[in-house]
Simulated assay, not measured.
Amino acid sequence: MGYAVGQVSAFAGVTVRTLHHYDRTGLLSPGGRSRAGYRQYEDVDLARLQQILFYRELGFPLDEIAEILADPQANALEHLRTRQRQLANEIARLRQLAEVDERAIEVQQTGVPLAPEERFEVFGEIAFDLSYATDAQLKWRDSKGHREAMARASAHTKEDWRRLMAEAATWRAELLAGHDDGEPADGERIMDIAEQHRLHVSRWFTPCRAEMHQRIADDPRAFALVVPPSQQRPGLAAYLAEAVHANASRRTRVKKHV
Rank of each mutant, 00 (worst) to 15 (best):
Y132T: 05
A98V: 01
D101H: 13
P207M: 10
A243E: 02
Q50G: 14
R162G: 00
D218Y: 04
V100C: 00
P228H: 06
A10Y: 06
A185N: 04
L97I: 10
G187S: 13
D135L: 09
H156W: 05
I190R: 02
I126Q: 02
D192L: 01
P229D: 13
V122W: 01
V44M: 10
R24F: 00
Q50T: 13
F128A: 09
Q232P: 03
D135N: 10
K139W: 09
A166R: 11
R147D: 07
H146A: 04
R56H: 07
V16T: 00
E106W: 05
A149E: 09
I68S: 07
T134R: 12
R233K: 11
E90A: 14
A169K: 13
R56C: 07
M1E: 05
E57N: 10
S202E: 03
E42T: 15
P228D: 06
M165H: 04
E57W: 06
L138D: 06
A248R: 05
S154R: 15
Q109G: 01
T18E: 06
M191N: 00
R141Q: 03
S34Y: 08
D23R: 08
T170Q: 10
G182I: 06
A210F: 00
L28P: 01
T206F: 03
A88H: 12
R203A: 15
L80G: 04
K256A: 13
E242H: 14
G182A: 07
C208K: 00
A88G: 06
Q51L: 12
A241G: 08
Q108P: 01
Q196L: 02
E90Q: 15
H200D: 03
E242N: 14
T134Y: 14
R253M: 02
S29V: 12
D101M: 14
Q231L: 13
K158Y: 13
F205P: 01
T134D: 10
E183L: 15
A4W: 04
R93Q: 14
R221P: 06
H257E: 12
A177L: 12
L19A: 02
A92T: 14
L176V: 15
A136T: 12
F123R: 01
L225D: 02
T157S: 15
F11P: 04
D23V: 07
E117V: 13
C208R: 01
Q40W: 08
M165V: 10
M191W: 02
G32R: 07
F205H: 09
